[in-house]
Simulated assay, not measured.
Amino acid sequence: MPRRNPRHPDRRTQRRKDVTHRADQRPGGAFRCAGCRLDVPLGAPGTAHRNHCPQCLISLHVDGRVPGDRAADCGGRMEALSLFARPDGEWMLIHHCLVCGELSANRIAGDDNPLALLRMAVRPLSDSRVPVRALLAL
C-alpha cells in the first residue's frame, strides 16, 4: 500500500530517489543552467530533486521515463512551454526538448521565479488570435 501524505491524505508522498548526476556538475552539489548560466543548487524546496533552473525554467533532457533516473541519452535543452495545474492544485511545467521533440511534465519548486511562472500562466491572455472574452468566459 502506498504511503500517504499526512497533510494531503488523498496524495501519495514523494519518495526520495537515488539520483546519479552527470559529471559536468558544479562543485558543492550544483549545476550550471544551460539557459541563463546560473549556478543552481541541487536541493529544491517542495520536490525530491531539482530538474530545471529556478530563474529561467530551462531544463536539460536527462531523465528517461522516471523523474530523477537520469537515463535519457538525448541531453538536449528543454524549454518551458506551458503550465498546468493538477486537481490538487499543484502546478506543473511542460518542457519541450529542442533536440528530440519529447514533452515532459515537471513539478515546480518552491524557489522558482514567480514572475516567470505568472508570465507563462497568462501567456494565452496575451495571444491576439484568441479573444480574451472567450478565455474569461471559461
Rank of each mutant, 00 (worst) to 15 (best):
D69H: 02
A71V: 04
P54Q: 09
V62D: 13
G76E: 00
V62T: 11
R65M: 12
G75L: 00
M78R: 13
R65Y: 13
D63E: 13
R65A: 14
C53L: 10
P67H: 08
G64R: 09
L60M: 12
R50S: 02
A48N: 10
C53V: 07
A72V: 01
V40K: 08
G46V: 09
T47V: 14
H52A: 03
P54T: 11
P45C: 12
D73Y: 08
R70K: 11
L38D: 15
A48W: 10
V62A: 14
P45G: 15
R77K: 14
L38M: 13
N51E: 09
M78Q: 14
P54F: 05
H49T: 09
L42K: 08
R77W: 12
P41G: 13
R70E: 13
L57D: 02
D73F: 09
A48L: 09
L57S: 06
D39R: 14
G75V: 00
L38A: 15
R70S: 10
A72W: 11
G64D: 12
R50V: 01
C56R: 08
R50C: 01
H52Y: 02
A48E: 13
D39M: 07
H61C: 05
R50T: 01
L42F: 15
P45Y: 03
A71E: 14
A44E: 03
M78W: 10
I58K: 11
A44M: 06
A72P: 06
H52W: 01
D39G: 09
V62E: 14
G68R: 04
A44W: 00
I58T: 13
P67A: 07
S59K: 07
L57T: 01
A72S: 15
Q55I: 03
G43C: 07
A71F: 06
D39L: 12
G68F: 04
V62K: 10
C74H: 02
P41W: 06
D73R: 14
L60F: 04
L42V: 07
A72I: 01
D63N: 15
N51L: 11
V62I: 15
G43S: 13
M78C: 15
A71P: 06
N51T: 09
A72K: 01
I58Y: 14
M78V: 14
L57K: 02
G43W: 04
D63Y: 10
V40M: 08
R50N: 05
R77T: 14
H61W: 04
G75I: 00
T47R: 04
P41Q: 12
D73N: 13
C56L: 10
C56K: 08
H61V: 00
L60R: 08
R50M: 05
H52M: 02
A72E: 07
D63K: 10
C56W: 05
P67C: 06
G64K: 10
L57Y: 02
A71R: 13
A44C: 08
C74G: 06
R77C: 11
G46D: 02
P54G: 08
G64M: 12
L60N: 05
T47F: 00
P67L: 05
C53K: 07
